[in-house]
Design a protein around this nucleic acid. Structure first.
Lengths: 231, 231
DNA sequence: TAGATTGTTAATCGATTAACAATC
DNA sequence: TAGATTGTTAATCGATTAACAATC
């Protein structure tokens, strides 16, 4: 597979393509053109063709794209068929929710174990995932292939746990703590899920709309006023 | 406050600025220059000054920025002092985790109520937030100011619940379902938290590194080989 | 064959970076 | 005052869009 100078923006669009292709599949659609896909995703046909062309030639002139095979290609690009092994650290509310509800296998991942410090849940099994003691973590990492760690520990534990993970060969972290783990000289791949960043963006957009509305109302009030004084 | 043609990229950086400023405050730092801030966030000083200049003049020549007042400005830009009212729909695992652990008030939000269909939790109160019946939702929305809805319902309920919300004046949704709610003609503001998109991006980066490593190994093996045949 | 639609090259647009006068 | 650092204008870079020959 081609894999050259792919921009971050392209990479962030790939999962959206995947989701849309799954949706089309579910509707029984087997064929789609870049212009139809663009319309449904709010992107231009050009952009969609450019994006795919980073990785190869998946379409056919005069026909478009075959939904199932394009889906397979996108899944392969994302690494969904590489059977990555994951562990989860910190079985609090969010950790527990992920174990129970997030279907790792749908995305090509296998969650093999969870770790926590609370004695009352160590030894338990949630959704077929065993909860082990944090003390066993280094040994576990040494003895098993672990490709990514899901980090759902409390704030203060984020950095020390990350040190254990990287010291024992984990190179990728899916970070749910609100702590910025990305260190300048580290080679660890960190993907952040910052709830608060997301909420604050939403807050910005809501505020922007409020302000626009207020500005419009003020303009209209002024116009109203002047038309009264003119009459 | 100025608010002109602000690009999406800028808006997404604002919460990061806020987080870094809070960190500096906690360390007792009261003064910071754009170059120091840039170094710590992996951005250029130019970009940081450009970003802030969208909203006003917050610094001082020869000095830099006063951390507490810049923090206040960024918070105001994000709308954190507008006291937005929120409700949460769907008290499953993720919804419950958010109610218990996500500190809405830290970000200027007030979570006033949660809604669910499960009789066994209706009437309960989690972390001071009452759980009401889904049937009460329309009436509640009519009688209270609700600025945003946190959507943590199962997949199938996402669209019908969204229709109730928009029909009763909710204009912004923080969407935790894996369903694309953004409709072309809708004016609702939707902010998505797509766990799977995030995980798949991570998966891409891990795959990319794997591939690079394999390519390097292959190159070295070839070189090794040729040097043997040359000796 | 004619119509449709791709992959790719060129043109445009927007975002980031650099430079610098203003000034604390 | 001299040094530091801003806010802003201009230059550069990269990403998106448009155009079109190739071809199913």
């Amino acid at each position: 597979m081609k894999r050259l100078k792919v921009s971050n923006n392209v990479i962030r669009r790939l999962p959206r393509y995947l989701r849309k292709l799954d949706e089309l599949s579910a509707q029984g659609v087997t064929r789609v053109s870049s212009s139809e896909l663009g319309k449904q995703l709010g992107l231009t046909p050009s952009q969609i063709r450019q994006d795919f062309s980073c990785f190869g030639e998946f379409g056919q002139q005069g026909y478009g794209y075959h939904v199932p095979s394009l889906r397979r290609q996108v899944a392969a690009i994302l690494g969904m068929d590489r059977n990555y092994q994951a562990v989860l650290i910190g079985v609090g509310n969010i950790g527990h929710a992920l174990i129970d509800n997030f279907c790792f296998s749908d995305w090509g991942f296998h969650l093999t174990a969870a770790f926590d410090v609370k004695p009352e849940i160590i030894g338990a099994t949630f959704n077929k995932v065993p909860v082990l003691s944090m003390e066993e973590l280094p040994k576990y990492l040494d003895e098993h292939q672990v490709d990514i760690a899901v980090l759902t520990v409390p704030k203060d534990a984020a950095v020390p746990v990350t040190q254990i993970l990287t010291a024992h060969g984990v190179e990728a972290i899916w970070n749910f703590t609100n702590v910025e783990l990305t260190e300048p000289n580290s080679s660890t791949i960190v993907e952040n899920v910052h709830f608060s960043d997301s909420l604050l963006s939403l807050s910005y957009y809501v505020s922007e709309r409020q302000d626009e509305r207020a500005a419009r109302a003020a303009r209209e009030a002024r116009r109203e006023n002047s038309s009264i004084s003119n009459s």
